[in-house]
Amino acid sequence: MDASLILRVSAPLLLWVPMAVSVYLLIRGHNAPGGGFVGGLVASAGLVFYAISRGQEAALRAMRLPPASWCGIGLLTALGSGLLAWLDPSAGYLTHRWWFPDISVTLPLGTALVFDIGVYLTVIGTITAMVFALVGEETG
């Protein structure tokens, strides 16, 4: 792909800025706009633009694992987050559990965040798999 100089130079930024933003969106999503879907989409968009500027190979290297694996890990994470519910025998599957660590930062830790991370990973895997497959097919 005949990427422009600007695109090539700014590529690392193009990858890491959306990544950071997406993680931020994911983590704060429970209390402010954001969440696994939005975060995952932003991260995917970052990876897609990285692929457009530096090539798909580079993007896949940056991802470490194939997109399909991200899908699988994400689904398993989401599925597994619900299992902890059974620590309380009376609770149904996917009843989230919460811990309130006694630190000054009010950050309740819950399996809901784990579930959302699962969503985040699945969305990244899905979108990148689809876009890379479709676009890669055309660009060779």
């Binding site: 879907f37 899905t126 689809m130 876009v131």
Partner: peptide, 19 residues
């Protein structure tokens, strides 16, 4: 929100079928 993401997935799938 979820419908949008799923809509994208279906559109991509339909696109592959067309291809």
């Amino acid at each position: 929100l979820t419908a949008i993401v799923i809509g994208f997935g279906l559109a991509a799938f339909a696109l592959v079928l067309v291809m």
